[in-house]
Design a protein around this nucleic acid. Structure first.
Length: 479
RNA sequence: GGCGGCGUAGCCAAGUGGCUAAGGCGGAGGUCUGCAAAACCUCUAUUCAUCGGUUCGAUUCCGAUCGCCGCCUCCA
């Protein structure tokens, strides 16, 4: 199956055809950095991370751009989110932005999310946005009113093509009061006039002001990816109005298609309702990391399709963590078998097993990045591999090596769920080994009481012992 | 009111016009073990919200009903 992507624009799965052979130009809406990132952000950026990783695994050269919104994103009250945060924490706006930009990157690093190739900031691209707005006015798609500039949706007839809505069907003022300056309530702001007390403001042909929210994504994506690029991603809640506005203003400007494929990821829910800042029902990523590893959070997210919502709860996280631990222990076991396996030719059965696995895993990934189905194939593969290994007398090192290869590719490179450090890599390691050898001496002498005592005390420190035939292994319990 | 989506086992979650409806968690049994734990192996939905329709055949397509969610200028 060729790589297929569900395109929100056509509402169908389409075969992916990049603009340039072997290249992917991709833009994903980034966070507004005025507070700590939560599990909702994790789902979005982990999903797109796996998509980027999979493209790279398929040998595409990817340019991945993800913006940082640090101005212009208004609340219902009309207040800028950044300014509100700055007031709350008594900081300079840019101080606030720095704090939460780093918090965001720290969280993403902990979740094994590969950094975007470019993380452009809205405040760093004000001249580009001003030029964009000027050109839209010149072409007659936008108008100035009292120092603000609005996009005239009636001049752009395909407005609504992404979200499938008609301007006249919308309830004007359903949520936000109708702005009397606009010719049509559906018109959206490209540039906003700043009152003197508004801290963040720039010079423009229309006086002092600041850019509207939608314009930054258009200006920055086109700057780094060109007038038309391959993929634009973002949260489904931004499909309308944000992405709709991006398309309108961009295509009005260039007369060319903006993004060829639109991808929308779904939400994280808590007890069935959206996790969001405004509802206050969010768990920050750093809080979640107190309890779970980044890989466990990734695995939890990836066990649901990116276009489906997922309900976040401790029970669901525990179940996912349990599953991942089993998966990884299969993986580490295979790696440790490598140390002791005899030399020899690769068994032809290994080739059968790996090529079947590769075919099935990639078939699922090619089907609109179906990570839950792809992960199911990993479990299937381990089942077959374990059977194969126990059915053979001795499996050669080269056989084990070839069995491991697709796992390195998929678990590590594509899904990113292999911890960088094995849990075993802790500084107490030599002491634990010492305790184990003392205990094994006791066991040899059948001093069960004392040997069990050591085992129980280690468990209290989250060190689990496992008595095998020849040696005793230990592991650090997650959580 | 308009637009979009969802409802699959105790829980989470893929999927399909007919072949055994993936996989994970949990549960049951077994192997291993001094006992454990872990790991491994086996089993765990005659049925896909409800009711109609189309069809030789529907969980899948169409319609209605019920329940839930997202968006309608704040959000990943």
């Amino acid at each position: 199956m060729p790589l297929t992507i569900y395109n929100s624009l056509s509402r169908k799965k389409e075969i992916f055809k990049p603009l340039n052979e072997g290249r992917v130009l991709m833009y994903v809406c980034g966070p507004t950095v005025y507070d700590y990132p939560h599990i909702g952000h994790a789902k979005s950026y982990i999903s797109f991370d796996v998509i980027v990783r999979y493209f790279r695994y398929l040998n595409y050269t990817v340019r991945y751009v993800q913006n940082i919104t640090d101005v212009g994103h208004l609340l219902d009250s009309g207040e800028d989110r950044i300014l509100k945060g700055a007031k709350r924490e008594k900081l300079e706006p840019m101080e606030l932005v720095e704090r939460y930009t780093w918090a965001y990157f720290d969280a993403m690093d902990a979740l094994n999310v590969v950094r975007p190739d470019i993380s452009p900031r809205a405040t760093g691209h004000v001249p580009e946005q001003v030029a964009f707005v000027r050109e839209l006015i010149r072409k007659g798609y936008a108008y100035e009113m009292n120092g603000s500039v609005y996009f005239d949706v009636t001049r752009w007839e395909s407005y609504g093509k992404l979200s499938g809505r008609k301007v006249e069907d919308q309830q004007a003022g359903a949520r936000v009061d109708v702005n009397e300056e606009k010719r049509n309530p559906a018109d959206f702001a490209l540039w906003k006039k700043a009152e003197p007390e508004h801290v963040m403001q720039w010079d423009s042909p229309w006086g002092r002001g600041y850019p509207g929210w939608h314009i930054e994504c258009s200006a920055m994506s086109m700057k780094y990816l060109g007038t038309t690029f391959d993929i634009h991603g973002g949260g489904i809640e931004n499909q309308f109005p944000h992405h709709e506005c991006e398309i309108a203003q961009s295509e009005a400007l260039t007369g060319k298609p903006f993004a060829n494929y639109w991808m929308h990821n779904n939400m994280v829910l808590v007890n069935g309702v959206k996790m969001s800042k405004s509802l206050g029902n969010f768990t920050t990523i750093s809080d979640a990391l107190q309890k779970y590893s980044g890989e466990q959070i990734r695995f939890f997210i990836l066990q649901t399709h990116y276009r489906s919502p997922v309900d976040f709860s401790d029970d669901a996280m525990d179940a996912a963590s349990q599953g991942l631990d089993r998966l990884l222990s299969n993986y580490w076991n295979l790696k440790s078998l490598l140390q002791q396996a005899p030399e020899g030719e690769a068994n032809p059965r290994t080739e059968e097993l790996t090529s079947l696995f590769r075919e099935k895993f990639e078939e699922q990934m090619n089907d609109d990045f179906n990570t839950p189905a792809a992960i199911a194939q990993v479990f299937e593969y381990f089942r077959r591999v374990n059977k194969f290994i126990t059915s053979e007398n001795a499996v050669s090192r080269s056989s084990i090596q070839s069995l491991i290869q697709p796992l390195d590719d998929y678990l590590d490179r594509v899904l990113g769920i292999v911890p960088y450090k094995k849990p075993q890599d802790i500084s107490a390691g030599p002491f634990i080994d010492l305790l184990i050898s003392v205990r094994n001496e006791l066991r040899r002498k059948k001093e069960w009481q004392l040997s069990d005592f050591i085992r129980d005390k280690l468990i209290e420190q989250n060190i689990e012992l496992e008595d095998g035939k020849e040696e005793t292994k230990w592991r650090v319990r997650q959580k």
